[in-house]
Design a protein around this nucleic acid. Structure first.
Lengths: 244, 244
DNA sequence: CGAAGGGTTGAAGGAAATCAATCCGAGTGG
DNA sequence: CCACTCGGATTGATTTCCTTCAACCCTTCG
């Protein structure tokens, strides 16, 4: 796991080519953008008000743990879509090579005569599905069994609300097959977390979170699974230089 | 990793409650279904013509390697959405507990006056995003470095088309942070795969696939990353008993 | 030419898989 | 009621694999 000291965020230099593509792209307004290798496209935690389609080149999405270690959640090539997050971006996006992308605005997607507001529309269902997938991608990014199980429990706790009790409807075998571990390691790790008084095991199908903060530390997270909002709420492209 | 001999697919017993929810669910037709713990909701490879929202209970999605080992790609609780795949389901869905779900038909989603066909509509962009996420979830389900790298290369090969040459625009460090390994292990594994004559390394940014079949075996896959279509193409609910 | 960054390779230590045994609770039947 | 079985879960001992630490190679660039 590499420790990346500073994401060299060079001056953004993008050739803007805004237009409406009637017929070709179903009348969704999209903007053609260019990024150079290494450039940041959006940051983790920013409001997710755009998403992107790769036309040419390679893009990576990445998250950082509090210890500085980096985890890439995906590579995107020509034809792939990235950044379709719900609410805020769960990972930053950076250009691996020089890239050309199409940038769609979320508002334009679901707007139209009589269209529901974007937050409540039918599209939100799909965004929620994407968020589910990314939530789990994130857990798998953790290296050790302790970190994975801690992240998993924090993820479940989010579902449960504020209660310190977490129901575990699935078997140890399910948890193991999900986290990419064996039931032995899962069981041992549960025991170990209980020994450290981070959790208290309540039968087969439940645990109490005793030390939420400790679990977060172990999982390498700031808080209970949701990355903190660090980006601004501006609707304009952050730091973009309009080449108009 | 558990070896599941047979997915006891009991007689499906679902209380159907078809209706149109105008106003509440944006006029999308959805059906309320019930499944008992352990029941299959849909199979891997089936045509993905429905997706689901959990109302109550827990659902898991899983894939099987050719060696019989199982990998769960996600758990879904009340409010979560699953099955929103593009083309065919990338993983089977099973009820962990007794569950109530809402079942949406893909066709009904994007249909309407003047709507584009579902395969080509703007919604397909979001489905593709979901597929991207799931593709990578699958890779992370592999246990050893050999399996992960093999699955990763096969995934890239899919992008490249039929050529046996794969471009690797990203650094070893990127690959490591993506696969949850160190650059040392990645480098060693590349060398080892080359020694076994499964691949041939071509500089830093390219490899040739010498033994596609061998890589598939190593990755535990049937073919180059895409699960084979095993399900039928019927638009009706497979094996469902209408409780009308 | 020398420095720097990415990549490869070797040796040693540690974490998880594997092999194996035991425990525990639920369900069953005597 | 108790013995028995069965599946899931826990725990211990050993092996395997990956990480870590370290050194070195190669290419690029000033």
């Amino acid at each position: 796991m590499e420790h990346v000291s500073e994401n060299g965020r060079q001056k953004m230099q993008l050739a803007e080519n805004s237009r409406r593509l009637f017929g070709i792209k179903q009348a969704i307004r999209c903007t053609s953008l260019k990024f150079h290798a290494g450039q940041m496209i959006f940051e983790e935690g920013q409001r997710a008000n755009r998403w992107y389609e790769v036309l040419h080149g390679t893009v990576r999405t990445c998250r950082f743990h509090i210890d500085g270690s980096r985890h890439l959640t995906g590579f995107y090539f020509a034809g792939d879509v990235f950044g379709a997050d719900y609410g805020q971006y769960g990972a930053a996006a950076e250009a691996v090579t020089d890239v050309d992308v199409l940038c769609y605005r979320v508002g334009d997607f679901s707007s139209g005569p009589g269209a529901p507001p974007p937050e409540d529309g039918k599209l939100s269902i799909l965004f929620r599905a994407i968020n589910c997938a990314q939530r789990y991608q994130y857990i798998m990014g953790h290296r050790t069994a302790h970190e994975r199980l801690a992240a998993f429990l924090l993820c479940l706790k989010q579902q449960e609300g504020r209660s310190s009790f977490i129901r575990l409807p699935m078997s140890r075998s399910d948890i193991a097959d999900f986290l990419g571990l064996t039931i032995h390691t899962v069981s041992r790790t549960f025991t170990e977390l209980a020994r450290r008084e981070l959790i208290k095991i309540d039968g087969r199908n439940g645990v109490f979170i005793l030390d939420h903060r400790g679990l977060c530390d172990l999982a390498g997270e700031e808080d209970g699974g949701v990355p903190p909002a660090i980006g601004g709420d501006s609707d304009d492209y952050p730091g973009a230089l309009s080449a108009a």
